Every structure is written in C-alpha cells, then in structure tokens.
Simulated assay, not measured.
Amino acid sequence: MVSFKANRSDPELVVPALPTPRETKTLSDVDTQPALRFYATGVEFFSRRPTIDGDDDHAQPEDAAKAVKAALAKALVYFYPVAGLQHLVPSKTLTLPTPWPLTDHDMVGEYFFFGPREIASLRSHARLHHGSSSSTVFELITAAMWKCRTVALGHAPDQRASLLITMNARGRWKCDPPLPQGFYGNGFVYLVVETMASELCSSSSLGHAVELVQKAKLDMTEEFTKSMVDLIALHGGPPYVPGWTFVVSDITRIGVDALDFGWAQRVGGGVPMVGDVKSKQVSYQMRCANVNGEDCVVASMFLPEPAMDTFAKEIFALSSEIDK
C-alpha cells in the first residue's frame, strides 16, 4: 500500500477572477431537493508531467496550489452561479428528511473493489442460481451490494427491502423540452426498486436482484422521467426511508478521469467517506485501476460497525470464485 503525508491548511475562499452579473437565478426543482443540501467532498490525486523544453502547455508552475486556485477563479467567471450566495425562497422551504437513526460515531465507511475476477464471480453466482441473462457491471455490483446490505442490517423476512438508484437523464431527455445548451445543474431522476427481504436474503437471490435492477432501468422512459420530475416538484424528492433504503449513485462516467491540467494528469481520487452524514447514505460507484492496471470499480459503503463486518463477509463470499 502506498502511503504519503499531506499538510492540511485552513480553507480559502476562491472568487471569480473578473466581475460577474449581479442577478438572481432560481434553482430547478431537481436542484432544490432537501436531500441534496450537503457538501459533497472529494479528494483528487494528480501526477506532475516531466518538463519538456519549449512545451508551454506542460510547463511546471512554481506553486501548484496557486495555479489550481487561479484556474478555478477563471472558470468561475463563466460558471458564476456556482460562486453565488444561496438562500431559501419562503414558498420553497421544505422539511429535511430524517437522517440515519444512529449517530455519526456509530458508523464506519469502507471501500470495496470489483475487478475483472470479482465481476466474473458475481456473474457466475447470478447465472448459477437464477439463469440471469447478460448484465452490466453496474447491475451486478448494485444487486450484490443491495443483497449483502439487506442481510447485514438484519431485515425481517416480511420487511420490504428498498433500493433507490440515481439515473442520469441527460442522454434520455432529447424531446420537448430539451435541456438548454450549457446546462450544468443536476440532470438525474430516481428509480425505486422494492422486494421482500426474504427474497433478497436467500442464497440464490443474486440473479433475482439483478433482474429487478434491469427491469427498473427499462422502465425509465421519457414519460417516466417527466413524471419523476413532477413528483420531485410536489414532494421535494423521491419516496424513500433514509437509512434503510439503499441509495446508489454511479459516477464512473462523469469524466473526472479525463481531468488534465497539462502540467499534471489525474491519477485517482473520488468521493471519500467524509462530510455531511446525508452524503454517507449514498453508495458511490467510481472507476479505478488495480495494481495490474486493470479497470476496476470501487464502491463505497457506510454502515454500523457490526453490520459492516457482516456485509464484508457476504460481499467477499459473492465476489470469490466458485466451482463451475
């Protein structure tokens, strides 16, 4: 394991490099959801490129931190609403959802890696017991973690186990009205999946869970997308029970792996287990590479410590090789 030392300094406010319009912009109904009112923190790692004579694009700055701050200040000139002040409009004041019934100190966060071997094992388990058809990596990992989390939390057999998936709607929203050019607000909707805990916790249930995830994705039509946006506008978010519902967000394709400063290229990073407790209710799936350079997915999980121990045993059993 690679270790390193980091010096943490006091936070600094970065403002736009040039004057920006003084105006009021209203957030969309999707952006004003109470469940989104938290700071999503992240840590990114970059590797310096070797300096090449005559190559100004890769010229090393004297102070990397100052260079990044200056670049952010320039970007905020164009994306100035991000640098603005936010306040609640009285008519938009909503009740925040109830967080986990446990305190932050009762919880632990872990990352779980899924490389080619682990994915192949999940696929074998799904096919062995349920004859599942082809499935994506996201479907396999989501189904496996949902199943193992339900087992770890000790759901009663007659209790409903819920899964909520945040799905990108940008590529699907091509009809009327289209998202405006340059729109950089949230463009996602929710898929809600439910089944009985008894059906999800059985030894042969992985294939069933995969099929439930697949069916939910197929139900995401243009009509469904508009209906979900209307639901969010009326109720401030999707119907789910915070802490018990398994919430998944796939950020493997948001493009962070293509971040490049010219003089430094991104080599890793993502959403760590820090920040507001509400952000920890979401299991993020992120891209990474293992020691062999193979593409992998790393998925976060946040659970009470005893449940985490059980979850780890369950997920390792599913992602281990089985006899063909």
Rank of each mutant, 00 (worst) to 15 (best):
R117V: 10
L164T: 11
G109Q: 03
V274R: 09
S91T: 07
V274D: 03
A73W: 01
G185P: 02
D55M: 09
A73N: 00
V192Q: 14
K226E: 12
K74S: 10
V14Y: 05
G115E: 07
Y190R: 01
V2H: 13
Q86W: 08
T26D: 12
P304A: 11
F246I: 08
V68D: 05
A289K: 13
S279M: 10
Q60V: 07
I141G: 10
Y240W: 08
F112C: 08
I52H: 04
M301F: 07
K226R: 12
T98E: 09
D106H: 15
T166Q: 02
P178E: 08
V282D: 01
G109K: 01
G131H: 05
S28W: 04
E199I: 00
R49E: 13
D250M: 00
T51Y: 05
P21K: 06
G269K: 12
M220Q: 11
I165P: 05
P61T: 08
M228R: 07
K174W: 01
D31E: 07
F4V: 09
P101T: 01
Q60I: 13
D323C: 10
A264L: 12
E12F: 05
G262N: 06
S319T: 05
H87V: 08
L94S: 11
V241G: 02
A17Y: 04
P81F: 04
A17H: 10
D158S: 15
Y111Q: 03
H208N: 04
L18P: 01
E44V: 10
L88D: 14
S279L: 10
E314A: 13
S9L: 14
R22Y: 05
H129Y: 15
L206S: 05
R170T: 04
C288I: 09
F4R: 02
L102T: 06
N168M: 00
A156M: 08
E194T: 14
N168T: 00
R170F: 06
A312T: 15
V241K: 13
V248M: 02
S198K: 15
F224R: 14
V30E: 00
V247R: 00
S91V: 05
K25L: 14
K215Y: 06
L76M: 04
A152C: 11
K278T: 06
T26A: 11
K280P: 07
M107W: 10
A233Y: 06
F113T: 14
V193M: 11
P177W: 02
V14K: 05
H235S: 12
V30K: 00
A233Q: 09
T98K: 12
A143D: 01
A209M: 06
G109M: 07
I165E: 15
